[in-house]
Computed example of a mutant assay.
Amino acid sequence: MAIANESHQEEQNMQEHHGAGRYVVIWVVLLVLTLVTVYTGRMHLPDFGLLLALVIASVKGTLVALYFMHLSEHRGANRLVFGVSIAFVVLLIGFTLMDFGTRFRLSNPPGSQYSDLQAVDIGANQAEGRPGGHQQKIKQKGETHE
């Protein structure tokens, strides 16, 4: 009986048309968040850049699901599933970042913000003539090698 009442109530909600103003406001907010993502993506934020990008993406996805997919108008099981999925994503991302940030330093990739090792630049070794790489002989114009 609860399902029948819920679908009847949703049918009444669908008949009430919302103005375009709400969708324009959400669209502008999504555009602003996209600009913030692009702007912060060009900045060097080693400590919290990944976390900031994930939070912005999660907020944008939540806004799309709530307003453009009309989940804000639904009741009952739909809200429960949406809430549990958001909590699950937060837990997965949180546990992954905690694991990556607290693991043994030498197990992190060289050059990452969590590693003490310097990044290996193979091209620099070859250009500087250090041993360990194959050096290419370059012939300049006018030179002949016998």
Results as ranks from 00 to 15, higher is better:
residue 83 G to K: 02
residue 93 I to A: 09
residue 51 L to H: 07
residue 82 F to A: 07
residue 129 G to Q: 02
residue 145 H to R: 04
residue 65 A to W: 00
residue 39 Y to E: 15
residue 94 G to P: 08
residue 58 S to W: 02
residue 54 L to K: 01
residue 72 S to D: 14
residue 114 Y to S: 05
residue 118 Q to V: 10
residue 43 M to R: 15
residue 37 T to R: 02
residue 81 V to C: 06
residue 8 H to E: 10
residue 76 G to M: 09
residue 66 L to C: 04
residue 12 Q to M: 09
residue 26 I to G: 00
residue 86 I to W: 08
residue 69 M to C: 06
residue 129 G to M: 03
residue 38 V to H: 02
residue 78 N to V: 03
residue 49 G to H: 01
residue 135 Q to A: 08
residue 139 K to Q: 13
residue 70 H to S: 05
residue 22 R to Q: 13
residue 73 E to G: 08
residue 41 G to T: 06
residue 22 R to L: 14
residue 146 E to F: 05
residue 27 W to Y: 13
residue 115 S to I: 10
residue 34 T to F: 14
residue 16 E to R: 13
residue 17 H to E: 12
residue 17 H to T: 13
residue 7 S to W: 04
residue 91 L to T: 12
residue 126 Q to E: 09
residue 3 I to R: 15
residue 16 E to S: 14
residue 38 V to M: 05
residue 10 E to M: 11
residue 41 G to R: 06
residue 112 S to R: 02
residue 24 V to C: 11
residue 136 Q to P: 04
residue 144 T to C: 05
residue 15 Q to I: 10
residue 41 G to M: 05
residue 46 P to N: 04
residue 28 V to L: 15
residue 4 A to L: 14
residue 140 Q to Y: 11
residue 58 S to E: 04
residue 54 L to Y: 00
residue 106 L to Q: 10
residue 25 V to A: 15
residue 144 T to E: 07
residue 62 T to G: 06
residue 38 V to C: 07
residue 77 A to E: 08
residue 75 R to Q: 13
residue 18 H to A: 14
residue 128 E to M: 10
residue 146 E to V: 03
residue 25 V to W: 14
residue 8 H to Y: 07
residue 137 K to T: 10
residue 44 H to A: 13
residue 42 R to P: 04
residue 136 Q to D: 11
residue 141 K to R: 01
residue 140 Q to V: 10
residue 15 Q to C: 06
residue 29 V to Q: 07
residue 41 G to Y: 10
residue 65 A to K: 02
residue 101 G to H: 09
residue 61 G to F: 01
residue 27 W to T: 15
residue 113 Q to T: 03
residue 88 F to E: 12
residue 135 Q to D: 13
residue 103 R to G: 02
residue 23 Y to D: 07
residue 1 M to Q: 14
residue 25 V to I: 15
residue 122 I to W: 10
residue 15 Q to G: 06
residue 18 H to S: 14
residue 68 F to K: 01
residue 98 M to A: 08
residue 73 E to R: 09
